[in-house]
Structure formats: C-alpha cells, structure tokens
Amino acid sequence: MSLLQTLTETPWNSHADEASAVAAHAGTPSVAPQRVALWFFLGIVAVLFALFSVAYVVRMDLQDWRPMPESPALWVNTGMLFLSSLALQWTRMNLHRNAARVRAGLLLGALTTIAFVVGQLLVWRAMSADGYIVYGNPANSFFYVLTGLHALHILGGLWVWIRTGVKVRLGASPDEVRLSIELCSTYWHFLLLVWLVVFALLSYT
C-alpha cells in the first residue's frame, strides 16, 4: 500500500476498509525487523557523515586551511575495501549453492576488511611521522576524524561479521545465517559508498 493511500484512509469509516486492514496484517511482517532497523541505521550514519561533510566544506573556505598531500596508500586501502564488499556479495550469492565458497567468502571478506583498517592505521602513522599531526591544521583534523569515524563503523560491522563466521564454522544452516549475511553485505556496500564520498572529499582540497 502506498504512503499516500495510507495517509488518506478514513479510519472512522472502518467497514469500508476492514477486510483489507485485517488481510494486510495477518501473520508475519513481510520484511524482517532487523532489515528495517538497518535501513534506519544507514540513514543515521548517512546524516552523520553528511553533517561532517558540510562542516568540512564550510571550514575549508576559511583562510588557514592547508590541504594535506594525498597518500597513494589510500588507493590500496580503497581497493581492499572494494574487495571485501565484493567478497560478501559473492558469499551472499553462493549461500544456498556452495558451502565451501560461503566459508571462503566470509574469510576473504574479513581478511580484506582487516587489511583496510590496518592500512588506514599505517597511513595515520605515516602522516603523523611526516608532521601532519591532528591539531596542525584543520585539514589534518578533519582527515583524522573522518577516517577514524569511518573505521569505527567498519569495526562495528566486522564484529557482526565475525559472529556470523563463527556460526557458519559451527555448522549453522544457510537459512540460519541468511539474514545476517544479507544485512552484512548491505552494510558493507554502504560503508564502501561512504568511504568513496569521504575519499573524494579528502582529495578535493
């Protein structure tokens, strides 16, 4: 039922739409609650990064902004995150077909994700070794805040992913982990998208 139809219902004339009302809500909800909650959560994360981006653009226009040099290692990290997103999608597609590929996909995804986070840490170390410390310039401050916040979101997802991996390892059936794997892959694609926006923003200066 469309939103417009819903909002124009006349609940005081309940004989008219009684049958449809009962039929529409008999039994199971068509979408898993976890999926609804995840979509709301993605919305919140999107707002969070959007607000940081607005602050970034506003702050960038002020006089003391000195852009940071771009680190080539960030391209490698981007590749790693892209691979992990791909690995989860592959896991998801093979869920009901090939158990070995599911295990391989989960492992590959976890490894590439960890590689991404470690890679980001290495970039941090290289940057601060070169004198680009967090309070040196607002461009540096934003760099650390944005990459750090993004990495924290990745780590949160990784925790769910590892739990799912352990369940598969312990012999859970595909149906038991289907929802977790689907939601993980959605979350990973989303965080890849967020990273691409953040990366573009950081390179924009």
Binding site: L7, E9, V22, H25
Partner: peptide
Amino acid sequence: RTRGMTLMR
C-alpha cells in the same frame, strides 16, 4: 502491529 492495526488506526 497486531492484526487490523493499520497505521491510520
């Protein structure tokens, strides 16, 4: 929501 509880109810 339970059976019959539409948004507009």
